[in-house]
Design a protein around this nucleic acid. Sequence first.
DNA 1: TCGTCGATGTAATGTTGTAACTTCTCCGTC
DNA 2: GACGGAGAAGTTACAACATTACATCGACGA
Lengths: 156, 156
Amino acid sequence: MFMTRHDHQLHEGESLKNAARDRLTEQGEQWTGMRASVFDALASFDKPASAYDIAEEVSKRQGRRVAANSVYRILDLFVGANLARRVESANAYVANAHPDCLHDCIFLICDQCGQTVHIDDDSLSGGVRQAAKSAGFSAPRPVIEVRGTCGDCESN
Amino acid sequence: MFMTRHDHQLHEGESLKNAARDRLTEQGEQWTGMRASVFDALASFDKPASAYDIAEEVSKRQGRRVAANSVYRILDLFVGANLARRVESANAYVANAHPDCLHDCIFLICDQCGQTVHIDDDSLSGGVRQAAKSAGFSAPRPVIEVRGTCGDCESN
DNA sequence: TCGTCGATGTAATGTTGTAACTTCTCCGTC
DNA sequence: GACGGAGAAGTTACAACATTACATCGACGA
């Protein structure tokens, strides 16, 4: 097992927000106040957050009701622009810490605490892509997630 | 890319149903009329079916209303006993054609037509398991799915 | 017969996701 | 400044997926 090497910028806080904004504007999309709020809220969670979680958080911060609907629209945009990822097995979303580079990523989700770590392993995801192609599938988008128990929960 | 070799029995129709029944009873669970009905309905779909799809199908066949609730209970049991699998990215279930042997399986789901094919590749899933363990995860249960376009839809 | 246990039924509710349509805001033009 | 277009966001309603709590039923042993 090895991790494919590549130089990528791991962002956090302001830096992440800036990277996200830049990425989105490069795509010809606008970086609006609402989008910034949704991104902030998303990035503030330390585990995958549902659209409703995010709607609630944004509502709290803005002191007004923000509908899940609007959040979904923005999340879809984010996912399309690689600013966020959807965790299929959790019906939830996480901010992408390096929106700059494109990866099939692998999520490890703890069934106990919900903590999720994200790893990149291009040899694994490449293998999955390749298997899909061999089976006649085009435009494959791998979804690779692992449910289990994280080290912290295991030792407690 | 290669497929791990193993002798497994690919069941269908009556044979599949029998294998499922045997498997479940071996686990100390009952093979009831309701469970048989749910299994039949599940196996009758040629693509992943939601619990509600199955509830509707069973209802139709039995001429009475069967609640999604009951179907969920039975599906959970089936998944636990390896008689069925959940397709996370589709919120749906498929019958497992070889309940006898345990695999991490890989689903290829066509975004156009919903057709889903299921492949086993122990080297790939083993790699994913291994990666999870290296990251401190125990009891890993890989979820490997690929969204894309199947050969049929591609050529049309 | 009675108690119990597993399976199923029933009803209610919670959560996740979409659709249709309206309103707002920004911006370019006249 | 008034008008009109386009994209963003608001509002409402609803569809789809999932769970919880509790009632009922039937088999089976005491």
